[in-house]
Simulated assay, not measured.
Amino acid sequence: MYTIHGALGSPYSMKMRALMRYRRITHAWSHGSHVQQLAAEKSLPPVIPVIEYPDGSFKNDSTPVLYDLEERHKERGVVPPDPAQAFIAHLLEDFGDEWLTKAMFGYRWLEEVDQIQMSRWLSFDALKGGNLKTSQSMAKIFRERQVGRMGMVGCTRENFPLIEDSTRRVMKALEDHVVNEHYLFGSRPSLAEISIYGQFSQLGVDPTAQAMMRADFPYTFRWLLHVDDMSGIEGEWDDANAPIKPVALKLLAEFGRVYVPFLLANEAAMEAGEETFSMEVDGLPYSQGTFKYQLKCLRELRYRYSKLDADARAKVDPILDENNYLEFLQ
């Protein structure tokens, strides 16, 4: 049995729980304040969740773990068998993990109403109660630490108009789609939906974001609860010759619109030895500190593209070229 050492307030924890639930991989959910200490004890990066394997080993980067589980457990996988669809699903999974997470962080820590409620709830979660005085004291410290990190992760008030516009375009694409069908590459979920769910699971809880979703994207809001536990879903992948669904094309367009310039600006700044980078999309500014992990993500995307065969590229290239980001993968 696997154990997910995670937290309800962690989008990547919810991603991995939804993944294991859908895949019917036997697991336990261990929620609490011990997770970061566990990561340190196992010499892992200080991120959650930490996945404890049946053999007693530990890992905590959600995307490599997802692919590792694909190798270890063949049934009910989340990577489409068609290489072109699999590559597109990976692009969208990375987009969710690395760009949509900024919406989660910004909605949670920019406005006072969200800061207060979520710092109190997350402290309550970590302590499993622990008495109100203790948890609220912890909440104050936690709130100050998280708000202090806003500039580092790019979730400033100056940046948030772009982040929010992008998030709303993603939600509009999903809203138009989920009223007809729930999944992007057939009648079963892929890694793309599960990644997007992980980030938006938090927007479905935090006060400001939840109110926005209920008012403007009610069926996307409800869809989150479906993706949370898909253990009863029995579905099929789209045929390899089926056209890519409009929702996936819209999400890929957003990938090219905001995430490609983000990755390229980060790469250029790192190569120049700069500590920060800036970009502009649709006249809206964005700047933050450089991140090595996003450079790793870009290299992984390029590596996966380089491994596509001619047939897969024939399907993928026109889509990428239409959105003006074919060259960034080459």
Rank of each mutant, 00 (worst) to 15 (best):
F262L: 13
H90F: 15
M212P: 05
Y53W: 12
P285A: 11
W223D: 01
I163A: 02
G6M: 07
A39L: 10
Y259F: 14
R313H: 05
G151C: 05
T3S: 13
E275I: 09
L225Q: 15
D206H: 14
L69P: 00
A139N: 02
E158M: 07
L91C: 13
N266Y: 05
Y219R: 12
Y2F: 15
R313T: 08
P161R: 03
V113N: 11
E111K: 11
M20F: 00
L252S: 00
L326E: 02
K172F: 11
L264N: 07
D61Y: 03
A314V: 08
Y12R: 02
A269H: 04
D317Q: 07
Q294N: 13
P64N: 10
S166R: 05
R299I: 06
D55W: 07
R24I: 01
L174P: 05
T134L: 12
V113D: 09
A39N: 01
P64W: 07
Q37C: 09
F262D: 07
K15F: 03
L191Y: 06
F217A: 06
P49Q: 04
D216F: 10
D216C: 12
L251D: 01
Y219I: 07
M270T: 09
H73M: 10
I116V: 15
F160L: 06
K250I: 11
R72S: 10
Y12Q: 04
E322V: 05
E275P: 04
V50E: 03
C297W: 03
K59V: 09
N324Q: 09
P246E: 09
F105T: 06
E254D: 09
A269Q: 01
K296A: 11
E300L: 14
V281K: 02
A103N: 10
M212G: 07
K250A: 15
M230A: 05
R108P: 00
S190P: 06
R120H: 11
E271N: 14
D321N: 14
D165C: 07
L251H: 06
V260L: 08
I51L: 10
G186Q: 07
W223K: 05
D206F: 12
W237K: 11
I196F: 08
